[in-house]
Design a protein around this nucleic acid. Structure first.
Lengths: 234, 234
DNA sequence: CGTGTCTATATTGTCGACAATATAATATCA
DNA sequence: TGATATTATATTGTCGACAATATAGACACG
């Protein structure tokens, strides 16, 4: 009974009706996973071919990508995939810290008993996985994502949900994929998750926010360190 | 030498080249100001006529509006302007509190002397205006917006700037217009602004964030009260 | 040899026509 | 008469063709 798969923010849902929507998803995935390299130009004609559609729907998809911030558009010139810089990655983490902190606070205020229980289950599953395979990175990541996802949903704040789940996480994933970073702080993160759940269960919004912010901050520090090491290597 | 006009987030810049961009701006303005009423359906054909273009560019504009969250789209049915509820307004304020707090913190860390001076000037102009006309609401609003705008820009965090200046503020403005609320706490807000500037000038990020969050929270409390009064009246 | 201009080409921007879908109005049957 | 099936209509979705613009290359000139 893996809880993860179903609830994770799915890559490209099947129930997509319209072409622009489908292309938007696929294109986003290709960008995030690095199949279309950062900074590269996006040719409408070429992509129309690749995704088997005409340029109309494709332009719509590109518009949306631009609105979300994954590509940059210049009139009469075209669109390019955004460039990734360390500074911007850290800036994104600052935003994430603030937003996820608020999510945790509101989750503490609004989650009902059932939701809290589900959250506990997620955490337990995650714990078990780490125990089993000593923190095989993939499950660790997906477990982490699932945990955060649940809390964000639990906040019941639609705008927050939109920002974090629909916009920001794709950016974060893009960095993860392309800078090739996997969090190596599984057990530590797990403990922090536990404390956060407790605060939420208690209905202690202040503490939940505090802990979540610290958690994201620690994650950022981890990333920051990896970036430094990378610079040294190169 | 009014500082405000030039730097305020302009409604619809003149230097717009492409039609979708122009339509996006105009349509957004019409929605924000309530000329297209909340919850109403958006007919592509009708709007294409109104803005003097064909349906292609219009669809692109609608896509972007949807990505920003001002309209909701259903496949094969059409788009509607979002409905405004008190709960969602308050949720937006929660997000704003978190983001502007971060903006203030980063501004404190990153603004140079010149930028801080500009901020002071903005504040001084605002103060003078309030003194003159006893807080004529229009200038008060625009001064407030300008102040926040400067700090957000001062954070140097591109993602933050995008979220606050390009997405969130239009939502806030939409609520302001349609719920017809003007902040009646001019002098109080001004004091708070002063304290924030001091913290930023000092480079005290913690304090700047704390004060900014309190400031936004106070604004939210004000809005909350007005909402309650409204309910009573009706 | 460097610089500026001009032209050729490729790419984006825009449009109108046609296809697919949802909604509403109508008709049919128990 | 009520509910369901069916058609009609209006709206959205999609496409291919044409116009406008920017970029790269050739060419002339200082």
């Amino acid at each position: 009974m893996p809880v993860a798969a179903e609830t994770t923010m799915s890559s490209c849902p099947e129930d997509i009706k319209t072409i622009p929507e489908r292309v938007f998803c696929q294109l986003r995935e290709d960008i995030v996973e690095g199949r279309i390299s950062a900074g590269s130009r996006i040719s409408e004609a070429e992509l129309a071919g690749r995704y088997g559609t005409s340029r109309g729907p494709l332009r719509e998809a590109i518009s949306q990508l631009a609105a979300v911030g994954l590509v940059e558009r210049r009139p009469n010139v075209g669109a390019r995939v955004i460039e990734l810089s360390s500074k911007q990655l850290l800036d994104v983490f600052h935003v994430r810290e603030a937003l996820e902190g608020t999510a945790a606070r509101q989750a503490a205020e609004r989650m009902d008993a059932a939701a809290v229980q589900q959250l506990r289950d997620t955490l337990a599953a995650h714990e078990q996985r780490i125990g089993q395979d000593g923190g095989h990175t993939y499950f660790q990541e997906s477990g982490d994502v699932d945990f955060h996802y649940r809390i964000i949903q639990g906040s019941g704040n639609r705008y927050l949900i939109k920002l974090l789940c629909h916009d920001l996480y794709y950016l974060v994933r893009m960095y993860r994929c392309q800078f090739g970073m996997r969090s190596k702080r599984g057990p530590a993160a797990l403990k922090e998750h536990g404390a956060i759940v407790d605060a939420i269960a208690r209905g202690d919004g202040d503490m939940a926010e505090l802990l979540m912010r610290a958690h994201v901050r620690a994650s950022r520090a981890n990333v920051e360190q990896m970036l430094m090491e990378k610079v040294e290597v190169n």
